Amino acid sequence: MEMETTATGRTSSHEIFGAPCWITLMARDLEPAQAFYGAVLGWEFRRAGLGRGFSIALLDGDPVAGIGSLDTALRAPVTWTPYFAVASVDETASRIRERSATVAVGPLRFATGRGAIAADRDGAVFGIWEGQLFSDWHVWRKNAPVWLRLRTRDAFDAAIFYGQVLEWASGRPGCCEVEYQEDEVVLLQDGQILARLSSGAVDTAPDPLIQPRWHAHFPVPDVEATVEAALRHGGTALGHGPTAYGTETTLRDPDGAIFTVTSAGPG
């Protein structure tokens, strides 16, 4: 596939369709959210050109994620939402609806592209994006500032849904590949793991960690020190321990958004 990196160094969604391309937190108050993640993860921030209520988080000068200010009129949960690159947001939104899932917001037009927010059939929220990305995606993935895990009722069923919607394993040049490893589904592109899909979520569970969700993992050099910083700045630790992918702790920020800090990448 022809490379579609622009003169600004940013990548087009057409080049990496189906791949996770960005992650955004919609917080109730932008400045306290920036203060928390700056203190805990060492991020700095700059305006993103999407309005006064949105900023780009930077680590060592490279874009990591977006943080926006949630409209107070919306009684939506504060959460980290991953976005997947698509060639056509309209066609993808149609495929989502055709498969009994929900397009909750959009498609909406922005200065650099069009996006929408959806929920899969089990209620896990995700976004889709068509257009110019916030950075060169290849650099973003190489730096691996975040990786994703879908906690879902049935990973194999979810892989079929997302495969049909996002054209995973479609045979088209540049599409993402899917592998089955024991009880998990692994999403890859060019051999690099982009996300993992795990079974066992329960939509009626009172524990949010067991409910279906796309979950953000942020690799850090020192998990213990990061957790201590989160606790000092109003965060809450929800779970800690060694895993097959390294030591990790799941945290809740002061606004309620859940994320995990980990010592390793997705594998």
Rank of each mutant, 00 (worst) to 15 (best):
R114G: 14
T5S: 05
D122S: 11
Y180S: 15
S100C: 13
G235V: 06
V103Q: 02
G49M: 07
Y83K: 07
A111W: 02
P266R: 09
G241T: 06
V64H: 07
A76W: 00
F161M: 06
W80S: 01
T11R: 01
G131E: 10
R114Q: 15
H215D: 01
A201K: 10
R196G: 04
V165F: 08
M3G: 08
S170E: 07
L194Q: 11
T102D: 10
M1G: 15
A7G: 14
A169R: 07
A155M: 04
G9W: 02
E167Y: 00
T236E: 11
A216G: 05
L251W: 04
S100L: 13
R95S: 12
V40Y: 02
E91Y: 06
A76H: 03
R149C: 06
E98N: 10
R95V: 09
F36P: 00
A201F: 01
D120Y: 03
A229W: 01
I23H: 15
G265S: 12
T24V: 08
A144H: 01
E44S: 14
G171C: 06
V139W: 11
A229Q: 12
F54E: 07
T79G: 07
E98M: 09
A216V: 14
D29Y: 00
L25G: 07
E4H: 10
A205R: 14
G241L: 02
V165C: 10
P77E: 13
G246K: 12
E98I: 05
D255E: 14
V165M: 08
L70A: 09
A111V: 10
L50K: 08
R232I: 06
V220Q: 06
G131W: 01
R196F: 01
L30Q: 03
H215V: 03
I160H: 05
A144R: 04
D90W: 04
C21T: 09
W140S: 01
G123V: 11
L59G: 14
T236V: 11
F110A: 14
T8H: 14
T8F: 13
F84L: 04
L133M: 13
T81E: 00
V185E: 02
I193M: 10
V139K: 15
L187A: 01
D183I: 00
F54Y: 15
F218M: 10
T152G: 09
A158Y: 03
A229V: 07
Q181L: 14
T11C: 03
D253Q: 13
P173Q: 01
S12N: 10
G235N: 09
A48N: 11
L70M: 13
D122I: 01
T247P: 04
A65R: 02
S199C: 07
R95D: 13
E179A: 14
P219Q: 08
T92V: 12
Q189P: 02
I67E: 02
P206K: 14
D253W: 00
D222Q: 12
W168R: 08
R232L: 14
V103M: 08
A101V: 08
R252Q: 15
V64Q: 00
D90M: 10
L231E: 05
A119R: 11
E184D: 14
R109E: 15
W129C: 05
G200D: 02
R46D: 13
P219G: 06
W80L: 00
T5C: 03
L188V: 08
L251Q: 04
D190E: 15
L231R: 11
V220F: 08
A159T: 02
A73P: 03
